[in-house]
């Protein structure tokens, strides 16, 4: 090619450049597809293994019997106690965690005009999202279970007075409430973080158009911004729920575990990951191994069903996009 006249050099450089750009482009397409395939493969490797180990031990007894039953001491043992416990505690945690998390996210994205304060809140949310769950569990333990050092005299009487409103200020024992609050603590920053990121990505012209048409800020928030960001916010909530449903460490001290079926959050409660942990720690007798894998499978299937449900509900409303 050296015979070509020098004045064609820019065109040649152009062609070479285009070729290079296209090659890189194709390379990146292939790379992205490959890594996505790798991620999906890992999913199947893990899920496949859990399904393989768990499915052989699953039967109806597992769902309808507790680990121990007072009326039928010889009944087959199952995990009804921990399934119910997980559902109740995650539900209670969401009632507290989701609104607080979303409100904080909205604050960060919409109202944070004081620069230093919003930076502080953002930093705090990040730190909380990274705090190890066991420490959060210890905090919930100190507040809701031990409480001896926290509430004295008047404070204790006040707490008892509001017991009707907040049942979790019962006497200091491990309880479903304490476990739920520990989970809520973990949930809030995750939701706040994702909510903020998503709301911030709502294009400014949508917001400006709404305000320009005379809508108030709150109207704009509820009619324009939140609906547009809904899918992302729901993803954030799902991620948070998936995270807390699988948490073991914070429940160890707060929920306490219960081998009997209990639906009263004032009493100790069990949860699926908690049972998995207990069974894993126990001597490798066959029945305990079954418990480990079957509980794990049920936990994952529960989360799966929940994911599908949320997806279904949110899809019906998402007529656009």
């Amino acid at each position: 090619m050296s015979t070509l006249p020098t004045n064609s050099s820019p065109a040649r450089r152009q062609r070479l450049y285009n070729l290079k750009a296209r090659l890189i482009s194709w390379g990146m397409i292939i790379f992205c597809t490959c890594v996505a395939a790798l991620a999906v493969f890992c999913l199947f490797a893990i899920f496949g293994y859990i399904f393989y180990r768990g499915a052989e031990y699953l039967n109806w007894n597992f769902f309808f019997h507790s680990q121990a039953s007072r009326r039928h001491p010889s009944a087959p043992s199952g995990a009804a106690n921990s399934i119910v416990g997980t559902l109740i505690m995650v539900g209670l945690a969401s009632i507290f965690g989701v609104p607080v998390g979303i409100l904080c996210g909205i604050y960060l994205a919409e109202y944070s005009r004081d620069a230093w304060f919003s930076h502080l809140v953002r930093l705090v949310v990040d730190v909380l999202a990274g705090a190890p769950s066991i420490l959060v569990g210890v905090l919930a333990y100190e507040i809701f279970v031990r409480r001896i050092n926290l509430y004295h005299g008047f404070a204790l009487r006040l707490m008892r007075a509001v017991k009707m409103v907040a049942p979790f200020v019962a006497k200091g024992d491990p309880s479903g409430w304490a476990g739920a609050m520990a989970l809520a603590f973990i949930m809030c920053p995750i939701i706040a973080r994702t909510t903020e990121e998503i709301i911030k990505l709502v294009p400014a012209h949508l917001r400006e158009a709404s305000l320009g048409l005379g809508a108030s800020r709150t109207q704009t928030l509820f009619r324009v911004i939140l609906p547009t960001a809904r899918a992302g916010i729901i993803t954030g909530i799902m991620l948070a729920i998936a995270r807390i449903a699988g948490e073991t460490a914070p429940l160890l001290f707060t929920a306490g575990g219960n081998n009997y079926l209990s639906t009263d959050p004032n009493k100790p409660m069990s949860a699926l990951p908690f049972e998995v942990y207990k069974a894993y720690q126990s001597p490798p007798r066959p029945s305990w191994q079954h418990q480990t894998w079957a509980c794990m499978l049920v936990l994952i299937v529960l989360i799966l069903i929940f994911n599908l449900l949320v997806r279904f509900v949110s899809r019906n409303k998402m007529k656009v996009r």
């Binding site: 121990a68 007072r70 160890l252 306490g256 575990g257 219960n258 081998n259 009997y260 100790p268 942990y277 207990k278 720690q281 126990s282």
Partner: peptide, 10 residues
């Protein structure tokens, strides 16, 4: 029958 014992192997 009136006693309910719960043991958590933690």
């Amino acid at each position: 029958p009136h006693v309910e014992i719960d043991y958590q192997a933690v």
